Lab assay of single mutants.
Amino acid sequence: QLWTVEEQKKLEQLLIKYPPEEVESRRWQKIADELGNRTAKQVASRVQKYFIKLTKAGIPVPGR
């Protein structure tokens, strides 16, 4: 299922709330739990694509 604008905005906020961890899967699980309707795997996939998009555009990656 496609990500809504609201989900993307919340994801961006949660990336700041939950900074990078030694075991990133824990971070994705915390974010997924707060989103409520996404799995950690879906979050990880979305974040990877989002970070690539930001990097290509020369925009700083949130939480890094």
Rank of each mutant, 00 (worst) to 15 (best):
I16K: 13
E34I: 04
E22C: 07
P60H: 09
K41C: 11
Y18T: 02
W28V: 02
L35T: 00
N37I: 09
V23L: 09
G58K: 09
E24M: 11
Q29W: 05
K30F: 08
A32H: 00
K17N: 03
P19M: 07
E12M: 04
T55W: 05
G36K: 07
I31Q: 00
G58E: 12
L54C: 14
E12T: 06
G63C: 15
K56H: 10
P20K: 11
L35F: 09
R38F: 07
K9Q: 13
V61T: 14
V43D: 00
I31M: 05
Q48Y: 09
Q48E: 12
G63D: 14
V61H: 07
R27N: 02
Y50E: 15
I16Q: 11
R27K: 01
E12F: 04
R26D: 14
Q29K: 06
P19Y: 03
K9N: 06
P20R: 08
K56W: 03
K49L: 08
V43G: 01
Y50C: 09
T4A: 03
E12V: 05
I59A: 14
E22Q: 11
A32N: 00
D33P: 01
R27C: 02
I31Y: 01
N37C: 07
A40N: 04
D33G: 07
I59F: 13
K41Y: 06
K10P: 00
S25W: 10
S45T: 06
L14V: 01
K56E: 08
N37S: 12
R38T: 07
L14G: 01
L11R: 00
Q48R: 11
W28H: 05
K9L: 07
P20Q: 10
Q8D: 14
L15T: 02
K49I: 03
L11E: 00
R27E: 02
K9G: 08
K17L: 07
G36N: 08
P19N: 04
F51M: 14
V43M: 02
L11H: 02
A57Y: 05
R64F: 13
R38H: 10
L11F: 04
V61R: 11
E22V: 10
V43Q: 00
K30N: 05
V47E: 02
K56M: 07
I59G: 15
L11Y: 01
L15H: 00
I31V: 07
D33Y: 07
Q13P: 01
P19T: 04
K56S: 11
I16W: 10
L14Q: 02
Q29L: 06
I52S: 15
E34R: 04
E24I: 05
R64W: 11
N37H: 11
K53F: 05
K53R: 11
E12R: 05
W28Q: 02
K10V: 05
Y50F: 09
P20W: 10
A32R: 00
L35S: 00
D33A: 08
A32W: 01
R26Q: 14
V61I: 14
K30W: 02
E24L: 07
R26L: 15
T39A: 02
I16R: 10
R27V: 01
P62H: 12
Q42N: 05
V23H: 10
R46L: 11
P62K: 13
Q42Y: 06
G36A: 09
P19E: 09
I52P: 15
L54K: 15
A40M: 09
L11M: 05
N37P: 05
K10E: 07
W28I: 03
N37G: 14
R38S: 04
K41S: 13
L35I: 07
T55S: 14
G58D: 14
A32T: 00
V43F: 01
Y50M: 12
V61E: 13
E34K: 09
Q48V: 05
S25Q: 12
I16M: 15
Q29F: 04
R46G: 11
I31L: 03
Y50R: 06
K53N: 11
S25T: 11
A57L: 11
Q42K: 01
K56L: 05
A44Y: 06
G58M: 08
T39H: 02
Q48P: 03
I16T: 11
F51K: 13
D33L: 07
L15C: 04
Q42P: 00
K10Y: 05
V47H: 03
F51G: 15
R38N: 01
L11V: 03
P62G: 11
V47L: 04
V47T: 06
L35C: 03
L54E: 15
Q42W: 04
E24C: 07
E22T: 12
V47Y: 09
T39E: 03
A32S: 08
T39F: 01
W3G: 03
R26E: 13
A44G: 07
L14W: 00
I16N: 11
L35M: 11
I59P: 14
P60W: 05
F51V: 10
P62F: 05
R64Q: 15
L11D: 00
N37D: 08
Y50S: 14
K41L: 12
V5D: 05
